[in-house]
Simulated scan of single mutants.
Amino acid sequence: MGNRTIRDYAAGIVGAILLALVALLPSQALAWGEYGHRTTAEIALANVKPETRAAIARLLRHEREIGTPDCDLKSLPDAAVWPDCVRREGWRWGYTAAWHYQTAPVCEPYNVRTNCSGGNCVSAQIERNLRIVADESLPGNVRLEALAFLVHFVGDIHMPLHSGDKDDRGGNDNVTAYGIVPGRNLHSIWDSALAERAISSADPPLVRRYSPAERAAIATGGPEDWGRESWQTARDFVYPNAFDVAPCDGDLPDEAALTQEDIVAAIPVSQGRVQQAGLRMARLLDEAFAPGPLAVEERRR
């Protein structure tokens, strides 16, 4: 068997495995699904200061006061998925739906104020909820609810298609067929199948204690920077990877053939965004729970 034949055979096996993995995953309409969001929280929890971890545990004691018995809020990973869970009760939490994203056209200059009327967007809600968490004068249940929104939205803003859009609601429209994952839209692929594959295949594991140098290099910027990064990733990688054309050269095709090579190329991009979300979340939590009124005043500026 020649080298090319062996490579083709191996590629076929990998493609079949990826297809099987994707077929087993449920369709997700929410960023990163439960696994991705829990992973970002686990990364954060492994990298916060001990004092921050203790402060989080104290806030979690207020779970019953939140009044969402069908949506657990017993741990930071629970908190990371809680905002998606409560959205099922639209009569009570429907007003939060626009807080999870901030899609901006990838073929226009990025502006953090785009699609953020009245602060109803993910970047503004990260800032708002960070301020609430940091304010020790507020009741514990109010701060716990804000903590859940904060950790969830830090995850959301790092998912490229929650910031970048090409007239398709961030990959939710007009992408109806894929080579190895037929019937799934682009947003769904990045939410669930790709994120889960990226997390489970990471070596070393994404959930670990990072060195001070790693944290300093990765845990940078703020919500505006993170949204811009996601928007740029959507423009420069996600859309070209899926359609084999630059999104700003014209209309996208109605369908795309997302090959196994495309999936493999996307895995490190997805891994990087999950890693960044977790370590940046850790930094924000350390800031929010820093002792003394000075920390609160810093967040109010």
Rank of each mutant, 00 (worst) to 15 (best):
L194C: 05
T259N: 02
D225E: 13
D249V: 10
D262K: 13
A195D: 13
A213G: 01
A257D: 15
T233M: 14
A219E: 01
P247L: 09
F237W: 13
W226T: 01
W231K: 04
I263T: 13
I218G: 08
V207N: 08
A217M: 06
R209W: 01
T233A: 08
E229Y: 04
D225M: 05
L194G: 12
S211L: 06
A195S: 15
R208C: 09
D236M: 08
A257P: 00
L206N: 06
A257F: 10
N241H: 07
P212K: 05
G250Y: 11
P223F: 05
D262E: 04
A198M: 07
S201E: 00
W226V: 02
P253D: 07
A234G: 12
V264F: 07
A219S: 10
D254N: 13
F237G: 01
R197L: 14
T233Y: 00
P205T: 04
S201R: 12
A256K: 02
A234V: 09
R197K: 03
A246Q: 15
A213R: 11
I218F: 03
A217K: 08
R197T: 14
Q260E: 12
A217Y: 01
Y210C: 07
P212Y: 09
Y210F: 15
L206A: 02
W226I: 07
L206K: 11
E196Y: 13
A216W: 05
A213E: 15
P223H: 00
I199N: 08
S211D: 04
R209S: 15
I263M: 13
A246L: 12
Y210Q: 04
A217R: 14
E196V: 13
E255V: 13
L258D: 02
E196P: 00
I263E: 06
N241Q: 13
I218V: 15
D236W: 06
A216Y: 00
V264S: 04
E214Q: 12
S230K: 03
A234R: 11
N241V: 07
R235E: 07
L194N: 10
P205S: 11
R197S: 06
A246V: 05
L252S: 11
I263L: 14
T220S: 10
A198E: 02
A198H: 11
S230G: 14
R208E: 07
Y210A: 06
W231F: 15
A202K: 03
D249P: 03
E224I: 00
D244R: 12
P212T: 08
